[in-house]
């Protein structure tokens, strides 16, 4: 080992010789070379100075950060979930709603049938009107005897 190798190892691994690849050789060189002792002492001073400074954040900083936290936007939910959230949280309304469902279903079906019946009646009147219209059209055509006379030379 020479001084430059020692310095390179000091740069690469820091001042703790025990963490170097060959600590025994480094230790031995350190003991017999006063120039590297100075380098190592300097490195130790710097490392200690870097490591020992404990800093406390200002007392208001944490509160300031917490007060500036934005509320996260809610993730999009399905429409039926939104609707469900409008109902009270206790489960007492569920049996009542279950009883109401067939009732509502029957009402809706009945309403639809009534409108079908009305549609049928409308069709019936349309047919009668069309028949009468057809008859009227035939009545306006000239009688067949007149056609026959026209065709005679």
């Amino acid at each position: 080992m020479n001084i430059e190798t020692f310095k390179n190892l000091l740069d690469a691994h820091g001042a703790d010789i025990q963490s170097w690849p060959d600590p025994e050789a480094a230790q031995e060189f350190f003991e017999r070379e006063p120039k590297v002792r100075e380098e190592l002492a300097l490195a130790l001073t710097i490392e200690q100075e870097l490591a020992t400074r404990a800093t406390q954040a200002p007392a208001t900083l944490a509160a300031q950060i917490l007060s500036n936290l934005p509320d996260q936007p809610k993730p999009p939910t399905l429409l039926w979930r939104e609707l469900l959230s409008l109902f009270p949280k206790d489960r007492a309304w569920i049996p009542a709603a279950s009883a109401l469902v067939p009732l509502l279903l029957g009402f809706v079906l009945g309403l639809n049938n009534a409108s079908f019946a009305a549609d049928d009646q409308e069709d019936y009147y349309l047919w009668i009107f069309a028949d009468k219209l057809e008859q009227a059209t035939f009545d306006t055509s000239p009688p067949s005897s007149v056609i026959a006379e026209d065709q005679t030379p």
Partner: peptide, 15 residues
């Protein structure tokens, strides 16, 4: 939870 995590790291981060 964020406040407690922050408390744990704040001084070190600020330093």
């Amino acid at each position: 939870a964020f406040a407690s995590l922050m408390a744990r790291h704040l001084d070190s981060l600020y330093g």
